[in-house]
């Protein structure tokens, strides 16, 4: 190890060169091309051979090979009528480093699942099936940055802005939020819950102001979320909507076959975004609760939910989080959040 390494300094010139090389390589097709060329070693490959293997046109492959050549990762040499591409030693070194990446299962799986979730609109494929093959080890990693109070406050700000849209400007919300945070940070004993407490406190203050000034509607719509166990999906949905709409909406949740308690993993991924499911519990689906609702959102409970006239019914295909790893549950949480914001809030908050 030379002294340069021990202090962790990377010379500016070296950093620039390496950055340029990596930038040229940072494309899925070129990553795969590099892999093939490195595998072919000294014998090299022609653009035509690669094009065939990749199902790409020869000009496309030639273009990518040119970019790799500019990065000093492949050399080109004419051999008869062909041009043969070979890896440089830098390419082989780099490839050895990169080969380790996809082996690290968690991120790969997360990527895979993300693409699955992206297809959610076109119908959900069972998550277990997708994840099962590569997922022997449940991998848990902290979601980067989410436990930072500033990040949590940012999310709170976003939610309160939505909740008070049309009543208060984002700036007013921001002012109340910051002021509430300041006040609470002087008195709160447990700082871990500070962002959550701040959200409630700020929301109550803003609501009182709005009521005083006659800005809030007195009659609030009632929303009911129904899933099977009322331990995961409908709990997440209810909590998310509560944080987004506050007391502008009456929110209930229920399950067609209620579980014993809220899933700890579900509670954990909600805590990460500053929402506490602490006192929530699974509740059975009853006739009255459906009767009193204005909007009923069902999530995977089949036709267990009675249908009455004059209500708005939405059926969301959200996968069951039970037994999934936290990265997957996070994706489910975000999907629920997205649908609430997109499909529910516009009608509720006008």
């Amino acid at each position: 190890m030379n002294p340069q390494e021990s202090t962790g300094r990377l010379a500016t010139g070296t950093a620039k060169r390496l950055a340029g090389q990596l930038k040229n390589l940072a494309d899925p097709v070129r990553v795969r091309l590099l892999s093939i060329i490195v595998a072919a070693r000294r014998e090299g490959v022609s653009a035509g051979e690669v094009a065939e293997a990749f199902d790409l046109t020869k000009p496309t492959v030639s273009h990518h090979l040119k970019v790799l050549g500019e990065a000093g990762l492949v050399t080109r040499e004419r051999s008869g009528t062909h041009i043969i591409y070979r890896p440089t030693s830098a390419a082989r070194r780099l490839h050895t480093v990169l080969r380790g990446i996809p082996g690290e299962a968690a991120a790969e799986r997360e990527e895979g699942l993300r693409s699955v979730l992206d297809e959610l609109d076109g119908g959900w494929r069972p998550a277990a099936e997708e994840a099962g093959a590569s997922a022997q080890v449940p991998v848990e990693r902290p979601l980067p940055g989410l436990l930072d109070p500033e990040d949590l406050l940012e999310r709170v700000q976003e939610r309160l802005t939505i909740r008070f849209a049309g009543v208060f400007t984002p700036e007013t919300v921001h002012r109340y939020l910051r002021d509430s945070y300041e006040r609470l940070s002087h008195s709160a004993a447990v700082t871990a819950h500070l962002p959550a407490l701040t959200e409630r406190f700020a929301a109550e203050r803003l609501a009182s102001v709005a009521r005083c000034e006659g800005l809030l509607h007195k009659v609030v719509p009632e929303v009911l979320f129904v899933c099977v166990r009322n331990a995961g999906r409908s709990q997440m949905a209810a909590a998310l909507l509560r944080h987004l709409a506050g007391d502008r909406v009456q929110i209930r949740s229920a399950g067609s076959a209620p579980g014993e308690g809220v899933d700890p993993d579900v509670a954990a991924v909600m805590t990460e975004i500053g929402i506490d499911l602490g006192t929530e519990f699974p509740k059975p689906l009853t006739d009255e609760v459906v009767h009193s609702a204005d909007i009923v959102i069902t999530m995977g409970c089949g036709d267990a939910c009675p249908v009455y006239l004059g209500k708005r019914y939405l059926d969301w295909e959200i996968p069951e989080p039970l037994g999934e790893s936290r990265p997957v549950i996070r994706l489910i949480r975000d999907e629920v959040d997205r649908r609430i914001r997109r499909e529910l809030l516009p009608g509720l908050l006008g």
Binding site: L22, K23, L25, A26, D27, P28, V29, R30, V31, R32, L33, S35, I36, A39, A40, V45, E49, V50, E52, A53, F54, L98, I101, P102, A107, E108, E111, G112, S115
Partner: peptide, 20 residues
């Protein structure tokens, strides 16, 4: 044609490119 088996599959290549 050269084997593409050794290459990263599409998903893996996307992840590598994303990190790079």
């Amino acid at each position: 044609p050269p084997s593409t088996e050794a290459a990263f599959d599409e998903e893996a290549a996307a992840l590598v490119a994303h990190l790079l």
